[in-house]
Amino acid sequence: MIGFIPNVGYAPFYVAATNGYYDEEGLDVSFQYAPEGDIGVVKQLGANTVEFGYAGDHAVIIGRTQDVPILSIQRIIQENLFGIYSKETFGTDEPYDLVGKKIAISGPGSTPATITKIMLKKSAINTTQVEFLYVGGAVISTHLTGESDVFATYLPMKVVAEGIAGEQMNEISGSEYTTIGRTYVITTERMINEHPDIVRKFVRATQKGLEYSVEHPEEAVDAFIKFNPDAIEKKQLHLSIWKAMVERGFDKDTNGNPIFYLPSEDNWAEKQDQMFDIGIMDKKTPIEEMYTDEFISN
């Protein structure tokens, strides 16, 4: 089992299931969804109700800080796709432009909230100089109705907003300020200790799904629709989203092929320091406890 919220961004898993990669490994995989988001996935893993989860590095670090015995074992979306978006530009397109502005964010403890605060801190802006609007799932609508000046979210939501508004959104990219926002397959220490063979098989099948999804966007969206039939109404939108994620979410080698990094090839210490510095954690965890390359490298 794996826990996350339905989204075309999770196409690699749907492809792995649709193309029979999990079956080939002898794995019976079903999907469970955590409406609470990444942190809900970590909680379910901690409670041993699921064997694998898909979540961002932010949730992994928070989980480890709260002594949840989890590790990231495979990097999926390789880059941070976070941005602060708006219909209009406010000047230099730097966080300085946000002073005095209303920023719509999904939730107060969310990854977008953390990344936004890091961006502000790195730009020497105090959080009191902006106004946060925690609006749940209404980040786009609050912006389009004029209630917020900007909205802080991920690239897929930008694509959705542009579709609704019929115009391009201005972007202050988060990737210049932090690497927080990359996503991982995670599992528990118990699974690694007791069922390393299953972990290895799961990672291998998911990797095949990931590579296929990146190389075949149309089929990736078809696999997503297979598991979420209602999504067929907006197939083109989902295709646009997935293509944008592939374009921005993966470094390319000299031949233009996507690069898939190891979990260790990330700035875990910097991520943790940034989260600690903005005060959302009161202790740090050894970074070696947050990941292992053991399964992907083999």
Binding site: E36, I39, V42, K43, I62, G63, T65, Q66, V68, G107, P108, G109, S110, A113, E131, F132, L133, Y134, V135, G136, A138, I280, M281
Partner: peptide, 22 residues
């Protein structure tokens, strides 16, 4: 407050839950 707020005990619940501060 769960749906959208900057203050209140509902906000506090969501905030703490997001950081796994049970």
């Amino acid at each position: 407050e769960f749906i959208g707020s900057n203050k209140g005990l509902g906000y506090l619940t969501i905030y703490a839950s997001g950081l796994m501060d049970t």
